[in-house]
Amino acid sequence: MIQPAGHTGIWFETEPDDPLEKLVYESQRFVGQPVALEPIGERALLPQWEDMPDPCHPEVIRRMEELGVEVVDTGAIGAGIVACGLMWDGGNVPTSFGFELVVTEDSSVYSGKISDDIDHPPEINLVIPSLESINVGCVAIHEKSYQGNAIVASASLVTGYGECETSVYSLQLGINAAGGNYESKI
Rank of each mutant, 00 (worst) to 15 (best):
Q3W: 00
A5P: 03
G6C: 06
G6F: 02
H7I: 08
T8C: 00
I10C: 00
I10K: 00
W11G: 04
E13F: 00
P16H: 01
D17H: 01
D18L: 01
P19E: 09
L20V: 04
L20N: 06
P34W: 01
V35I: 13
V35S: 14
A36S: 13
A36K: 09
A36N: 08
P39C: 02
G41F: 01
E42V: 08
R43M: 10
L45V: 01
L45G: 15
Q48G: 00
Q48W: 02
W49R: 04
W49C: 08
E50G: 09
E50P: 02
D51T: 11
M52F: 11
M52C: 15
P53F: 11
D54Q: 09
P55H: 10
P55L: 13
C56H: 14
H57Q: 15
I61Q: 12
M64N: 05
E66S: 14
E66Y: 01
E66A: 12
L67T: 10
G68M: 09
E70Q: 09
V71S: 09
V71G: 09
V71R: 12
A76I: 00
I77H: 13
I77T: 15
I77K: 15
G78H: 07
G78Q: 13
G80E: 11
I81K: 07
V82L: 04
A83K: 12
A83I: 04
A83G: 10
A83S: 14
W88T: 02
D89P: 00
G90Q: 12
N92M: 07
P94F: 03
T95N: 08
S96V: 12
F97S: 12
F99H: 00
V102H: 08
T104F: 00
T104V: 04
S107A: 15
Y110M: 08
Y110W: 13
S115G: 01
S115W: 07
D119G: 14
H120Q: 12
P121M: 00
P121A: 06
P121F: 07
I124N: 04
N125R: 14
N125C: 04
L126T: 13
I128T: 02
L131R: 09
S133H: 03
I134T: 07
N135T: 10
N135Y: 12
V136Q: 05
G137H: 08
G137E: 11
V139P: 03
V139E: 01
H142N: 12
H142F: 11
E143V: 07
S145Y: 02
G148F: 05
I151N: 00
I151F: 04
A153C: 15
S156A: 06
V158W: 03
V158K: 05
Y161K: 03
G162P: 10
C164V: 07
E165N: 09
S167Y: 02
V168Q: 12
V168W: 06
V168M: 06
L171I: 10
G174V: 07
I175D: 05
I175A: 07
I175L: 12
N176K: 06
N176W: 06
N176T: 09
A177P: 01
G179Q: 14
G179C: 09
G180N: 07
G180D: 03
Y182M: 10
I186N: 14
